[in-house]
Nucleic acid binder design. Structure first.
Length: 519
DNA sequence: GTAGGGTTAG
């Protein structure tokens, strides 16, 4: 039903119609239409209808209109838990966490949803560590969690990349008997993949009978993040055989898996499948994957042809990805074009300024270099620092690139120096930049207790089990090959090292990243 | 049948 018709025929306005309209306006962020519906609500006397007023609040919240949402909230005489939860969500959505938490503690009526609102709000603003602490508090005061709590906590845990927490939360899920809920299972698979335990993600996947398209997609995405392109493709094929229909997210996952594993031919074939067999209209993100797939492996002409024949205009991310491939493959002609396009579109992104400065310096455009540096200075653009976390004895330790703030810094440096001497003594030559972050006494004790050695190298820690052959990759930053700065090494298995950056894992064998295995 | 808080994405 169209708006004009609805407005003219008052006899058709029911609370159900209004609720549906509000939901639609919120989803589409259609503020103007939403205000119109709000007006109708007032005109037709639904002012004291609690579900409707909750939905009005939520509509404004979805449109990021905090003042309007708050006004509605204050006008509601006796707000129940659901209204309060909506207001908490609105505060988080508009980056006002302290107001949200304040409302939580002031609120007289709380239900599990109130706790969940804060929990998911913290995850929304990427404060996953606080989210985990909040969940602990929830457990301590005896508040019972539901499936939504667990899905949210599992997601926080995955983002924190703390595998000890991961197992604990998984344990809680089993204890509460929530494993049968598919989104919970999906969140478990996603979490294990994100904390580096792709085998555990697979084991859970294999053992659960309850699967939907997201279950399969989560595993495929997980394989992609681990550079395991062949496994991602195999899973995709099994998914199709099992009768599940891949959606647009599945294709983003599989295409990026192919791209990061160098499976160009297979990736293009899958892209063809997506459009021709599944009839999925490609979105910018899919086009971006294809451009990346081609350009990353040097097929710059093909990538260029693809870009110029796409039915949509490339966005700045696509130009950044293309430019970084052109730079990597040392193609000046395309680099210049991509750089111009990028400058037209994207004056804000810190990452591209750094790339631009590098490209200018390479092609000898000293003026460009100076300009890029001036922009960085003037705009106060700061490249986001690499961060990582690790959990020791239930405490999550955060690390920041270049951070030297730990009180025991000197002791740690000495400990690592000694350890390196021992490594050299058994015949390995560590040829890497060692940047000690911070390690505390608990960690040191843990090392002694397990007869294991944890090395803080690069941005984080290496964990070696007794008897593991220590292989130092010649240069930890070798993976700038695949356009990624390496974060920390999460595993060493024989001659294989698994390292991660902020988005995915890289497998190195003899100093060569799996991203380049299939060239 | 009416409202809030949750899972997959370069």
């Amino acid at each position: 039903m169209s708006f004009p018709r609805l407005i003219q025929s008052s006899d058709e306005i029911t609370n159900y119609v209004l609720l549906a309209l509000l939901k639609g306006c919120g989803r589409l962020k259609a503020l103007r239409h939403g205000k119109c519906v709000h007006g109708m609500i007032l005109k037709h006397g639904f002012r004291s209808h609690l579900p409707i007023m909750t939905s009005v609040l939520d509509m404004y919240s979805n449109c990021f209109r905090l003042q309007e949402a708050r006004k509605i909230f204050l006008e509601i005489e006796r707000p129940d838990a659901i209204v309060i939860n909506g207001m908490i969500a609105a505060y988080f959505r508009c980056y006002r966490p302290s107001d949200a938490v304040g409302l939580f503690y002031d609120s007289p009526s709380k239900d599990v949803g109130t706790w969940n609102s804060v929990l998911s709000g913290l995850v929304r603003i990427s404060n996953n560590y606080e989210a985990l602490r909040f969940f602990k508090q929830m457990v301590c005061v005896g508040e019972k969690s539901d499936v939504i709590t667990l899905v949210t906590v599992l997601s926080a845990c995955g983002s924190l990349a703390a595998s000890c927490n991961a197992r604990q939360i998984h344990g809680i899920v089993v204890k509460h008997g929530h494993e049968k809920h598919i989104p919970v299972g999906n969140a478990i698979i996603d979490m294990y993949a994100k904390v580096g335990e792709i085998e555990d993600a697979y084991i859970y996947f294999k053992n659960t009978e309850l699967k939907n398209v997201i279950t399969w997609t989560s595993l495929i995405v997980g394989y992609g993040k681990h550079g395991l392109g062949i496994e991602a493709i195999a899973t995709f094929q099994q998914m199709v055989i099992a009768g599940f229909v891949p959606n647009k997210v599945t294709f983003v996952g599989i295409l990026s898996a192919c791209s990061h594993a160098g499976l160009v031919r297979q990736g293009l074939e899958i892209y063809r499948c997506m459009t021709e067999i599944y009839g999925i209209e490609p979105e910018m993100i899919h086009y971006g994957c294809v451009v990346d797939l081609l350009a990353r492996y040097g097929q710059l002409e093909e990538a260029w042809k693809f870009i110029t024949t796409m039915p949509v205009q490339p966005d700045s991310e696509m130009w950044t990805s293309f430019l970084s491939s052109c730079y990597f493959h040392k193609n000046k002609e395309f680099s210049k074009i991509a750089m111009e396009k990028l400058l037209e579109l994207n004056p804000e992104d810190a990452g591209s300024y750094v790339l631009l400065s590098n490209v200018c310096s390479w092609i000898g455009d000293l003026e460009g270099v100076a300009k890029a540096r001036r922009w960085i200075m003037n705009k106060g653009i700061v490249k986001t620092k690499a961060q990582t976390w690790i959990e020791i004895d239930r405490t999550v330790h955060g690390f920041e690139s270049g951070g030297r703030s730990h009180p025991n810094y000197d002791i740690i440096v000495k400990y690592l120096g000694d350890l390196l001497e021992r490594i050299k003594a058994v015949g390995y030559v560590p040829n890497i930049d060692i940047v000690v972050q911070n390690v505390d006494d608990n960690l040191k004790e843990e090392m002694i207790r397990n007869h294991s050695e944890k090395l803080a190298i690069g941005f984080g820690l290496i964990n070696t089990k007794p008897g593991t052959r220590i292989v130092i990759v010649k240069n930890l930053r070798v993976c700038s090959d695949c356009h990624a700065a390496i974060g920390f090494i999460s595993k060493m298995e024989g001659r294989e090292i698994v390292a991660r950056d902020s988005t995915r894992f890289h497998r190195f064998r003899d100093g060569k990243c799996s991203c380049r295995e299939h060239w």
